[in-house]
């Protein structure tokens, strides 16, 4: 299978040849069914994207329209060679994405295993566990910032201050900003992974489990040798979807740390916001957006290929 690298380009709209109608008429029915969604996605997402590409070659600060003009590759050059914030943001995005996706998978697996056994109130436990995924990220971010991690009024801070030896009272968002953001990301996405993995667990045939148990397998052995292998595809799906969403994550950073202190929690999404919106620098913001798209395509393509190879291996 080949994941083409030209996928993003509007090449799919290339059907626009003279024989368009004729060609359409003789398409297999499957292709016709795809067309409406494809056309919609191309128009709604690629039109603004083309505009973004155009602006990325412009020197344009919204507040200074008089200096607007063609900038060539200046915006890209600046970002790639001179902008420290860009390098930091690239690194932070990688840190956030990798650690949040892996930890979410791990914690989600733990959640799923917890509720995959029978015990009183199992339904309620599952309900409580999925809730963080349902809560609006903006609301969750404000709650975490003000009521949990706040160094004066936060419950987490109070807990460590009163229960841990040495009464540490770290200013979470200031001293451990990356960890705090990852914590909030994992809190939100682990339930999502749980949802995916739970169905995977439930699709394991009971007979197999039963047989293992009759053979005297411990719970751990059963988990290792039956559950885990069965779940690998589900984990791959979770990892892929999680990556697509977490790479873009914006709300918690915007509402909790504003990308700081310094650039400690500035990811690419937030840096783009700072350039394009806060600083009104349309050109640089657009160039950054284009770079993010290119990087995402490369990374996700590699990820899919890698997963594909793994899947064929099993």
């Amino acid at each position: 299978m080949a994941v083409a690298d030209r996928s993003l380009s509007p090449a799919y709209g290339r059907a626009a040849r003279p024989s368009l109608f004729h060609r359409l008429w003789h398409q297999p029915v499957g292709r016709l069914l795809i067309l409406p969604a494809l056309i919609y996605a191309i128009i709604v997402t690629q039109a603004p994207f083309l505009l973004t590409i155009y602006y990325s070659f412009q020197r344009w600060n919204l507040q200074r329209p008089s200096t607007r003009g063609f900038a060539g590759l200046d915006n890209y050059k600046f970002l790639l060679t001179r902008d420290h914030a860009f390098r930091d943001a690239l690194l932070n995005t990688a840190i956030f994405t990798i650690s949040a996706v892996l930890l979410s998978l791990l914690v989600g697996l733990f959640y799923a295993e917890l509720v995959n056994h029978r015990f009183p109130g199992r339904g309620v436990v599952r309900t409580l566990l999925i809730t963080p995924f349902l809560v609006m990220p903006a609301a969750a971010a404000l709650t975490w910032k003000n009521m949990l991690l706040n160094p004066t009024y936060g419950v987490v801070d109070w807990l460590t201050r009163t229960t841990l030896p040495g009464n540490p009272s770290p200013n979470w968002l200031g001293v451990y900003p990356k960890e705090s953001i990852i914590l909030v990301l994992v809190w939100r996405w682990a339930p999502f992974m749980m949802l995916i993995l739970l169905a995977g667990m439930q699709s394991i045939s009971e007979e197999v489990r039963e047989a293992a148990r009759v053979d005297g397998a411990t719970a751990w052995q059963e988990f290792r040798s039956i559950t885990l292998p069965h779940l690998s595809r589900f984990m791959q799906l979770g990892g892929l979807l999680g990556t697509v969403y977490i790479v873009q994550d914006f709300d918690p950073i915007y509402l909790m740390t504003k990308g700081g202190p310094g650039t400690a929690t500035t990811n690419l999404s937030y840096l783009t916001y700072r350039k394009a919106v806060e600083a009104s620098n349309v050109g640089q913001g657009a160039a950054l957006g284009v770079i993010v798209v290119i990087l995402s395509i490369i990374v996700i393509t590699l990820l899919i290929r890698w997963l594909d190879r793994m899947m064929r291996g099993t």
Binding site: Q63, G174, P261, G262, T263, E278, S280, N281
Partner: peptide
């Protein structure tokens, strides 16, 4: 100056990092 919004935000992030003790 129009550029002060961006400059100010960048500079204040540096100072915030100093307040926390990152630099």
């Amino acid at each position: 100056i129009p550029e002060f919004q961006q400059l100010g935000n960048d500079v204040s992030q540096q100072f915030a990092a100093a307040i926390v003790g990152q630099q």
